[in-house]
Design a protein around this nucleic acid. Structure first.
Length: 662
RNA sequence: GGGGGUGUAGCUCAGUUGGUUAGAGCGCUGGCCUGUCACGCCAGAGGCCGCGGGUUCGAGUCCCGUCACUCCCGCCA
C-alpha cells in the first residue's frame, strides 16, 4: 500500500520538524549524563566533538567488518558506526531493534559519497567509543521501523510502540502544536480559559450520559458532561465576558471513524453582549489563521460564506456541504411539469410539495457512467436515478432542405457560444450538428425541454445531469450523496484546499416523526429569531434560530448559537416542544434561576478539536490523531478498560450487579 | 440493535475448479560480508488456515453457526 511510501517521506519531514519543535532541547541540556545532543541535533559543525547520544535502536546494518546503528529519539535519527577491532563491538553486535542505548563517541564527517541527503544529520556520524545498554526490548509485535498497516487490535494493545512510529508520532506532536496555537490565539483575543466540572449532573437532552455512582449519596449518580454547555452560560452570567476551554466532552454513543467512543475535545467558546455576527468575527479569524498555520500551504477560505440551512439543503443536499465539490443542484421542476416523463410529471401533478432537483455532472456524459450511477442509486435503495447525457448529434437529412427545421434552428442557436457568458468553453458545433440529449429521460421530455434544461444548467457535449424527484425533505439526503459521488467519481473535487462556510438560520424546531410531536431541532438553549413574538405568532416549524455551524470540506466542525437569555422565552420554547414547566424547573432549574438574576445576551460556539486535527493531518480516522484511543467497542486494550471492580468497591457504592444472561 | 468487509507464520499478504508435504516478503535464530542507510548473500526455526459443526473419499477453499476486528445505518440536543 501507499502507507510505506508515506511513512518514508514522513520520516524526512518530521525529523526536520521535530528538531524545530524541540529546539530548546538540542544543545542546552542541563545534564549530559545521558546525552550531550539529541539524535536530531548533530551537523557538520559538530565534527570533532566528543558526544553522548541516547535513544532507541531504529535499525542495525551489520556488515561483519563494520556495523551501523541508527539511533532514534523524538528529535531525529543519527547514524553511529563501529568496527570489529573496537572492544565495544560485542555489545553493538547484539543490539536489536528498539533497545535503548547510550552511545558515546566522536562526531566525524562522512565522506562525500557516503552522505545521506534524506537525513538532517546525514552529513555526519558518531564513531562509537562506548555503548551502554539502558534497556533491552523483546521481539516486537509491531515494528517501529517502516510503517505497513497493522491490525487495529495490535496497534492499540501496543500503543506505546505504535506511538514511536513516524506518522502517528508526528500526528500527535502536530495535535499538541495545534492546541498550543489555539490557546495562544484565544488568549491573545482576550478569552480566559476556565475549567468546568467533570463530575456534574445528568441532562435529559441529547446523548446518553456516562454515569458515576455516588458513594455518599446512595442511589444517586453524577454524569460526565456531554459538553460544558450550561457551565459556559453560567460563566457568562457570572460576568467573565469571554470564555474558552479545550474541554473534554463525554457521550456514551457508538463510535464512527471520525468519532471516538466516549470522549472527545471541543474548543468551547462563549462570549457576552454579542450578536451572531460578533461571534463570527471573533471565531472566523481564529479558525482561518489556525488552518493557514498548519495547512502546509493549502489554500484556506479567506472569508467564510454564510449559507442558510435551507439554501444548503437545496444546493448541496446537506447542512454540511463539501464546497470543494463544484456541483450545485438546481430545482428543475418546471421542465418536467406536464412533460412526457410520466414518472416525474405524475408525482408533480399529485402533490405540490414534489420537486425535481438536477445534479449537473460535467464530464460525466457517457452511458457507462450514467448507468453506473443508476445502479449505485438502486444499491442505495432508490428506484433509480434519471439522467440525460449530452453528445454531438448529426442533423437529419431533412433539416438541410428545411431552413425552419427545428433541429436546424437549434443547431444555429447552440452555435452562439452561450457558454461564454459563463466563462465555460464548449467545443463549438459544426453547422451540421447539434448538442442532443440522450437517455430515456431526454427521449420522453423531447428536444425542447431537454435543450431548456441544458441551457439552465449550462451543460455541453460530454456532460450529464441526474435527476431526483419527490418531496425534498425525504430525498435531500440521497441527492446530497449522489452529488458527492458524482463529484468524487468524476474527480471534480479539489482535495488540496480547506473550504469553509457558515451554515446559518437553522430551524428552531422540527417535527419528530417517532414521537409525533414538535421538538427542538438542535440546542434547546438557542435564541429563536424574532424572540417571544415569533414563538407566539408563527408556526413553530417556521421559526428560525440564531443557530449556526462551521463546516469545512464537508465536515461539521462545530455548532453554536446565540443563547436564549430570557426565562419567559425559554418557558415558551420548552412549552412548544412539549416540556412541562415542572420538567424545565427540575432539569434546568439552575440555569433558569441564573437567567432570573441579570443574564447578559450571550452566545458561542464549540469547534471539535479532534476533527480540526484530523483535517489538518489529512487523516480519515480519529484514532490516528488520538494518543490513547479506545477501539470501536469502547475498550482500552492497553489499560484494559472497562474492567470489573471488587465486591468491596461495589458495596461502597451501594451497587448490585444485574448482568444480562448470555 | 441491524447491514457490509476482513480473519492463513510474530507481522503484511498469496493460496486456481475442493485434490500430494499450505507459500512469499518483513521480522526472528545461526553463518558470511569494511561504507551501509529498506545493506547484501547463505541456511534454519516458526502454522489448531479465528473457533464450532456440517457436506465430501478428501475442506484453508463449499454450507450453517459463532467469535474478534473494522466500516456503515440506527444513535450522536
Amino acid at each position: 500500500m501507499a502507507a510505506s511510501k508515506k511513512a518514508k517521506s514522513a520520516r524526512k519531514t518530521s525529523s526536520g520538524k521535530g528538531q524545530k519543535a524541540g529546539g530548546s532541547m538540542t544543545n542546552n541540556l542541563t545534564s549530559d549524563a545521558y546525552r550531550t545532543h539529541t539524535c536530531g541535533a548533530l551537523r557538520s559543525a559538530d565534527v570533532g566533538e566528543q558526544v553522548h547520544v541516547s535513544g532507541w535502536v531504529h535499525r542495525v546494518r551489520d556488515h561483519g567488518g563494520l556495523l551501523f546503528i541508527d539511533l532514534r529519539d523524538h528529535y531525529g535519527l543519527t547514524q553511529c558506526v563501529i568496527e570489529p577491532e573496537n572492544p565495544e563491538f560485542s555489545k553493538a553486535e547484539v543490539a536489536r531493534s528498539e533497545w535503548v542505548l547510550k552511545i558515546s563517541g566522536k562526531v566525524v564527517d562522512r565522506s562525500s559519497d557516503n552522505l545521506n541527503p534524506d537525513l538532517p544529520t546525514g552529513e555526519v556520524e558518531v564513531r562509537i567509543e562506548n555503548i551502554e545498554v539502558l534497556s533491552e526490548a523483546s521481539e516486537l509485535p509491531l515494528p517501529v521501523f517502516n510503517e505497513p498497516d497493522y491490525p487495529e487490535e495490535t496497534r492499540l494493545t501496543y500503543r506505546f510502540l505504535d506511538l514511536r512510529r513516524e506518522t502517528l508520532h508526528a500526528n500527535i506532536v502536530k495535535r499538541a502544536t495545534i492546541i498550543a496555537s489555539i490557546r495562544r490565539r484565544m488568549t491573545d483575543a482576550g478569552f480566559f480559559e476556565f475549567q468546568t466540572p467533570i463530575l456534574t449532573a445528568s441532562s435529559p437532552e441529547g446523548a446518553r450520559d456516562f454515569l458515576v455512582p455516588s458513594r455518599m449519596h446512595p442511589g444517586k449518580f453524577y454524569a460526565l458532561p456531554q459538553a460544558p454547555q450550561q457551565f459556559k452560560q453560567l460563566v457568562m452570567i457570572a460576568g467573565f465576558d469571554r470564555y474558552f476551554q479545550i474541554a473534554p466532552c463525554f457521550r456514551d454513543e457508538d463510535a464512527r471513524a471520525d468519532r471516538s467512543p466516549g470522549e472527545f475535545y471541543q474548543l468551547d467558546i462563549e462570549m457576552s453582549f454579542v450578536s451572531q455576527e460578533d461571534v463570527f468575527n471573533a471565531v472566523e479569524p481564529v479558525m482561518r489563521d489556525l488552518f493557514e498555520e498548519f495547512a502546509d500551504g493549502k489554500p484556506v477560505t479567506q472569508n467564510f460564506p454564510q449559507i442558510t440551512y435551507a439554501e444548503s439543503l437545496q444546493k448541496y443536499g446537506s447542512d454540511k456541504p463539501d464546497l470543494r465539490n463544484p456541483i450545485e443542484m438546481e430545482d428543475v421542476t418546471e421542465h418536467f411539469r406536464g412533460s412526457g416523463f410520466k414518472i416525474f410529471a405524475g408525482q408533480i401533478k399529485k402533490d405540490d410539495k414534489v420537486r425535481v432537483w438536477a445534479i449537473p455532472a460535467k464530464t460525466g456524459g457517457s452511458r457507462a457512467f450514467c448507468d453506473r450511477m443508476n445502479s449505485w442509486a438502486q444499491g442505495e435503495g432508490q428506484p433509480g436515478l434519471g439522467y440525460i447525457f449530452f453528445r454531438e448529434i448529426s442533423l437529419p437529412d431533412e433539416a438541410f432542405s428545411d431552413l425552419k427545421h427545428p433541429l436546424k434552428e437549434l443547431s444555429i442557436k447552440q452555435q452562439i457560444p452561450s457558454s461564454q457568458e459563463s466563462g465555460e468553453t464548449f467545443v463549438p458545433q459544426s453547422a451540421s450538428t447539434y448538442i442532443g440529449g440522450a437517455g430515456p429521460v431526454a427521449k420522453n421530455i423531447g428536444e425542447d425541454r431537454t435543450e431548456a434544461l441544458r441551457k439552465q444548467l449550462n451543460l455541453g457535449i460530454g456532460d450529464a445531469v441526474f435527476f431526483v424527484c419527490g418531496v425534498p425533505k425525504k430525498f435531500a439526503d440521497f441527492a446530497g450523496q449522489a452529488r458527492t459521488k458524482v463529484g468524487e467519481d468524476l474527480d471534480l473535487v479539489d482535495r488540496d484546499r480547506f473550504d469553509f462556510c457558515w451554515i446559518v438560520d437553522y430551524p428552531m424546531f422540527e417535527w419528530d416523526e417517532d414521537a409525533k410531536k414538535v421538538d427542538f431541532s438542535h440546542n434547546p438553549f438557542s435564541m429563536p429569531q424574532g424572540g417571544l413574538e415569533a414563538l407566539e405568532t408563527k408556526d413553530p416549524l417556521d421559526v428560525l434560530a440564531y443557530q449556526y455551524d462551521i463546516v469545512c470540506n464537508g465536515v461539521e466542525l462545530s455548532s453554536g448559537a446565540i443563547r436564549n437569555h430570557k426565562p419567559e422565552i425559554m418557558r415558551k420554547a420548552f412549552g412548544i416542544a412539549g416540556y412541562d414547566e415542572s420538567v424545565l424547573e427540575e432539569k434546568f432549574g439552575g440555569m433558569l434561576r441564573a437567567l432570573q438574576y441579570g443574564a447578559p445576551p450571550h452566545g458561542g460556539i464549540a469547534p471539535g478539536v479532534d476533527r480540526i486535527v484530523m483535517l489538518l493531518c489529512g487523516e480519515p480516522n480519529i484514532r490516528e490523531v488520538t494518543m490513547f484511543p479506545m477501539n470501536q467497542q469502547a475498550e482500552d486494550l492497553l489499560m484494559g478498560a472497562p474492567s470489573e471492580v471488587s465486591a468491596q468497591q461495589l458495596r461502597e457504592l451501594h451497587i448490585r450487579l444485574n448482568l444480562p444472561k448470555s
